[in-house]
Amino acid sequence: MSRVKAGTITRTRHKKVVRKAKGYYGRRKNTFKAANQAVEKAAQYAYRDRKVKKRQFRSLWIQRINAGCRLHGIKYSIFINGLKKINLTFNRKVLADLAAREPDSFKEIVAKVKAG
């Protein structure tokens, strides 16, 4: 069998990483060593931030619901408490969507909560 020199294997391996660093800044997009570090770090952040994303969205939704509620003269905390009391199970994603895009529907829900 013919011989495969180590350089070939190394080049393929390096290429794979450098390709993933496409669009990075400076040396990170060209050299293996810098690219490898950057790609690893990016993957670590991606793993962490998939969890952070969930928190950030929840807090964004809460802000939107709060803004929507206050248009109808009621606080967020009172509103959510009221929802529970009359056994409505909307989640915050849906409520925020309604508050922002379907003000009429949201108004009805707030009215129902207020009526208790």
Binding site: I86, N87, L88, T89, F90, V94, L98, E102, D104, S105, E108, I109, K112
Partner: peptide
Amino acid sequence: ILFINSDSTGLRIGTP
């Protein structure tokens, strides 16, 4: 179904 907003039947909120 939690909530309906329809042109023909109007708004309906389920409990739940």
